[in-house]
Nucleic acid binder design. Structure first.
Length: 489
RNA sequence: GCGGUCAUAGUAUAGCAUGGUAGUAUGCUGGCUUUCCAAGCCAGUCGCCCGGGUUCGAAUCCCGGUGACCGCACCA
């Protein structure tokens, strides 16, 4: 194996079934679509189990599972039909494509809103004689490039869209959830699922996909009560590595951040703290992570305050999570679009809830964890994926030291008894050291080996991935021993 | 989307200039050895990105497509 970093992770991913390009056998496989193999899927499932534990359950959230295809009206109301589409012009000579609004602003100093009709850009291009910024060639007509994938529904092909973010289901479901699930503000709703964006140029495998997993959490709150968060005392001391403008990434506690106004209220500080704790438990090196406050220009159009949770990797600082205080933008939009009431009663007061959103990119998170976990152990000539034990795709390897003398049968039996409760992998073939290496590489934290002593006293050896140390454990004590080592702290 | 580089087994690569259907390493499967950290031996297994053209013959030359990497642009 090569060293860690992007290439090392990529090689591991391809060689050990973590992830690989989709539509493999065909030459016309489009870019930006990747598939998780057995180890990748198991790893992802465990990561999501941790997400459910540390955020959904701990934060008292509801989880839903919405449709991936949603109606046109939803995206009219959300603003995606207008704002998720960039006005672009293409050079007829060299083929370069430019953002029409930016080109016009740069060349002619004229500000045209990006949501304007294409004709407005054509007029400006003609009036100011704007040519291609690259080759000086004549520009073609402006058009809108929408990053949403459209789909045709039914025989008439009625226009609908694959969701470009999962959160719209949460917004449109909010009134029903509030009524039927006995909602009270603040109320947090979570969802994990696929989103789809027609990226112009997908890059770097899991880092920029056209079809990707998001886990989004929408916290509906009363804007007058942003300082009220029930669980706050238990996370008050959690360090948040805030960074914004000129400030260095220095840890402040969640309490200090809320007190100083660095984040808008205790409610927001509470969820940011849960998020920081979650990623630490997921195996992200806290020293190489930060919450970066976005400047006015970087923020999404709806956001009043925005923090990106970023992690340092060999590909630079990667944005894993966007935390946005979205104010009343979403519910007001859907109230206006649908005519339905989105105000709720909060202690006798009618309020249109504001939204604080935590939008996680799952695929990127998985990549970052893999990169932070992959090491070369030169001393022992091995590659180790030092995943937290509770995230490992294979939890325990079951090996026979040799195949004969009944050791194989004994190992088979142990494997059968363990696999109901654990992800156990059985392996009889090859040198024992080679089998340990294979398990190390996919991050299996434990290996159980049946040897000649097993038949005499009923014990097996339990090997730890990280220390390579072994201890003898009675066969019947294995489940407890493993459970102890796999427990989430 | 633009420009540059590139595409050969599961992975990493040689071969391409000077066309004659592919080699190495590692992996994988089975066997021998019976062994606690990638030992050895034997046998086996898998490949020229896709489509078209030139040619008696294409991994190799030409055209088109697709993908990957890097830079630019993009990333509500």
């Amino acid at each position: 194996m090569t060293a860690a970093g992007y290439d090392g992770v990529m090689r591991l991913a391809l060689e050990r079934g973590f992830y690989f390009p989709s539509c493999g056998p065909y030459g016309d496989a489009p870019a930006g679509f990747w598939e998780y193999g057995p180890n990748g899927t198991a790893f992802k499932n465990r990561f999501l189990a941790l997400w459910r534990r540390e955020l959904v359950r701990r934060g008292g959230m509801m989880e839903i599972d919405g449709s991936q295809i949603m109606s046109r009206s939803v995206f009219e109301a959300s603003g995606h039909l207008a704002s998720f589409a960039d006005p672009v012009v293409k050079c007829g000579a060299c083929g370069s494509t430019f953002r029409a609004d930016r080109l016009v602003a740069e060349k002619a100093g004229v500000a045209i809103p990006e949501a304007a009709e294409p004709a407005a850009f054509d007029a400006a291009v003609a009036e100011h004689g704007i040519a291609c910024a690259k080759c000086g060639g004549a520009l073609g007509g402006a058009r809108r490039f929408n990053m949403m994938f459209g789909v045709g529904i039914g025989p008439e092909g009625e226009r609908a869209y694959l969701r470009p973010e999962t959160c719209q289901s949460i917004f449109v479901d909010f009134p029903r959830l509030y009524k039927t699930m006995r909602g009270k503000l603040p109320m947090a709703v979570a969802q994990v699922g696929k989103s789809f964006r027609n990226e112009i140029s997908p890059r770097q495998s899991l880092l920029r996909l056209r079809e990707f997993y998001q886990a989004e959490i929408e916290v509906f709150c009363n804007p007058a009560r942003l300082d009220e968060a029930e669980g706050f005392p238990e996370v008050e001391g959690v360090k948040l590595r805030l960074q914004g403008g000129e400030e260095r990434a220095g840890p402040v506690t969640a309490g200090e951040a809320a007190e100083s106004g660095a984040v808008p209220g205790r409610l927001v500080a509470y969820y940011m703290a849960l998020l920081a704790l979650f990623y630490e438990k997921a195996g992200i090196d806290a020293e190489r992570s930060r919450f970066r406050r976005l400047g006015e220009k970087e923020k999404a159009f709806y956001a009043e305050a925005a923090f990106d949770f970023e992690v340092e990797t060999s590909a630079g600082w990667l944005e894993l999570v966007a935390c946005n205080y979205r104010s009343g933008h979403d519910l007001a939009g859907h109230a206006a679009g649908s005519g339905e009431k989105f105000e709720v009663d909060d202690g006798g007061e009618k309020v249109l809830p504001h939204v604080f959103e935590i939008s996680m990119g799952i695929d990127r998170s998985l990549y970052a964890i893999l990169e932070h976990s992959l090491r070369e152990d030169a001393e022992n000539d091995r590659t180790v994926l030092a995943l937290r034990p509770y995230l490992a795709p294979v939890q325990v390897g079951v090996l026979s030291l040799v195949k004969k003398d009944g050791l194989k049968e004994r190992a088979d039996r142990i494997h059968r008894s363990l696999r109901g409760d654990f992800d156990a992998f059985l392996d009889h073939s090859g040198a024992i050291g080679r089998r340990y290496r294979r398990l190390d590489e996919i991050g299996a934290p434990y290996a159980v080996t049946v040897d000649h002593r097993t038949a005499q006293d009923g014990t097996v050896t339990l090997r730890s991935r990280d220390t390579m140390g072994q201890r003898r454990v009675a066969e019947e004590d294995l489940p407890d021993a493993l459970r102890g080592g796999l427990r989430i702290p």
